[in-house]
Amino acid sequence: MDRLTELENRSIYIIREAYHQFGRLAALWSVGKDSTALVWLCKKAFFGDVPFPVVHIDTSYKFPEMYSFRDEMVARWGLDLIVARNEEALARGVGPHEGSKLNCCTELKTNALKQCIAEYGFEGLLLAIRRDEHGIRAKERYFSPRDRQFRWNYEDQPPELWDQYTSEVDEEFHLRVHPLLEWRELDVWLYVRRENLPVNPLYFARDGKRYRSLGCKTCCSPVQSNASTVDEIIEEIRTGRTAERAGRAQDKEDAYTMQKLRALGYM
């Protein structure tokens, strides 16, 4: 069995375990390449229809191309979309230009997600994070518990052996499930090519630049690139040495911003 098929099977197994375990399950969909691949894997796991909602955490600072791509995909794949926005914080004027990035991400992403979980009562959340994205994400389990305050107890994570996952937690917890944890950036693009998946046009180079990782418009910079097709992107990643998240401002503020964000419940 080739590597991509192996990865796909493992992800589908995990998605089905999560669906078996949780009455209230949702997938977080940032509209980027990884979570779009995750939604596709959910479609495959359930033979066409995703039997739970997909949640888009909308900071209101995303690229216009992300909103249009989102709406197009919802229609094409027949998705049950929930848009989660922290309206209260937005009304207070919280944004990337005021205060620290840590605070903005916490308010507009983590707290928006908290409000969404409180409203819908989700017990399990599928997330498309990958170990090769960031050293902190490399420490994750496939099934990872979070308490009501969303805290990640990274110093004392539960054991996770073989395909046996932490499936039950006390009531005040929810579980983050990470079916793509073992995928590399390159694997995602190889999968996009194999499955002919639609991706946001922002990933393709225009005028010598492209976005390699998508977040908020205000905190993402494009990287130098002439890769304007999926094949060219695959070649670029194979031969290149730039880190995937080189254009993401939130990683740069200090060496441990990502750890602090994640300890507070960030994705």
């Binding site: 050293g135 420490k139 073992e182 060496a255 750890q259």
Partner: peptide
């Protein structure tokens, strides 16, 4: 430090949790 990414790991000079890389 390529693998030990938690601040606590770097301060204590000791791996706390398993991590994977490629």
């Amino acid at each position: 430090f390529v693998m030990d990414h938690l601040r606590e790991e770097r301060q204590r000079g000791m791996t706390i949790d398993t991590a994977q890389t490629f």
